[in-house]
């Protein structure tokens, strides 16, 4: 194994993180702002390019590694978490990002996606959710809403979509966040926290596909209506939204969370957001407040808790056995089931 040598310790800027490849997303694609946020954030926090690996599957978002001046693998449709798992276990020293989309992560790659999270392997999974298949030119995806008219659903989709945040919470994820491509600062903050988190971090980014699904998140992300549709989740603060903070989230007498008018329930009744709750039930409830992106939707960090990281645990077991038995001796191994000698 190569020891990681530090570079000269010089601070990097965003352009140091950009590769020499021409970025080939459609003009106006939300992916551009995500790329800029990622590059800026990594420069800002003083991350090291030689220790950073971007792994992706297939889809528009999965071209991302080619544009990062780091190590990278553009792999197979849906399989990025599988490759990243092996890399993370083999190399706990690396900082691994999985870039994926709604089709890549939730359809063809659903199995690897959930298992990475339950194991809590050291990787940050960033899911660009645009509720459409872009690279294959406009079929519905596992996050498309019921009734979506696409090339493969000319009479409207009849599939119930996945809610990626709910799914991640159900899969035992320890860090679950949602952000969107129209707020670079929020993206950077959420990605930075994902980077700091030990284990698997999951970040869903509402990303606009301006060619095949333009404006699908515009209620939430557009500047004109954002205040009434975007529910900011801030740890330790009351969950409140609206032009003048007139709405909020509170637990009703029925035991469920509801969107409320603050003047009706009083400020004290508002739910205080706590991302550190061990029990994921409240985070899950928050993820179910909106049935789709046309209803007020929580944005922010739903859950951030600590659990042993898988790669660390693998290394710990190896070290423990090595400590107990001593470093393995091949000659002794070959004799371990008994021998006889012929002279």
């Amino acid at each position: 194994m190569t020891d990681v040598a530090t570079t000269n310790g010089k601070a990097t800027s965003r352009k140091d993180w950009a590769s020499d490849q021409e970025v080939r997303w459609c003009p106006g694609c939300g992916d551009f702002t995500i790329l800029a946020a990622m590059q800026t954030m990594l420069a800002d926090i003083g991350a090291r390019r030689e220790s950073t690996v971007f792994v992706s599957g297939i889809g528009c978002s999965s071209r991302f590694p080619y544009y990062m001046n780091t190590y990278g693998i553009h792999s197979i449709h849906g399989r990025a978490p599988a490759l990243a798992s092996g890399l993370a276990i083999a190399r706990p020293d690396l900082d691994i990002w999985v870039i994926t989309g709604d089709g890549d992560a939730l359809s063809i790659g659903g199995n690897h996606f959930i298992h990475a999270m339950r194991r809590n392997i050291n990787m940050n999974i960033v899911l660009f959710n645009n509720q459409i298949y872009g690279l294959t030119k406009g079929q519905y995806s596992p996050t498309s809403e019921v009734g979506s008219v696409t090339k493969s659903t000319p009479y409207g989709s009849i599939d119930t979509p996945f809610n990626p945040v709910s799914l991640a919470l159900g899969a035992e994820a320890t860090y679950v966040a949602r952000t969107h491509d129209m707020d670079r600062n929020h993206m950077m903050e959420v990605l930075k926290r994902a980077h700091e988190h030990k284990g698997t971090s999951f970040v869903e980014i509402y990303q606009n596909c301006n060619v095949y699904n333009d404006g699908v998140f515009s209620d939430i992300t557009g500047k004109d209506r954002r205040a009434d549709y975007l529910i900011p989740l801030v740890h330790g603060q009351a969950i409140r939204y609206g032009q003048n903070g007139e709405y909020g989230v509170a637990r009703g007498d029925d035991g469920h969370l509801h969107l409320v008018r603050v003047e009706e329930v009083g400020e004290d009744a508002l739910l205080i957001h706590d991302e550190s709750l061990e029990n994921p039930s409240q985070a899950f409830e928050l993820s179910r407040l909106a049935r789709g992106p046309h209803e007020p939707t929580p944005i922010g960090i739903f859950r951030s808790v600590e659990r042993p990281e898988y790669g660390y645990e693998v290394a710990r077991q190896v070290a423990e056995v090595e400590g107990k038995k001593g470093i393995g001796d091949i000659a002794a191994l070959l004799q371990s089931s008994g021998t006889w000698t012929v002279n």
Partner: peptide
Amino acid sequence: IAGAGSALGAAFGG
């Protein structure tokens, strides 16, 4: 698939 995929990821790491 993940058996093979994880091996390939580990190979990338040496």
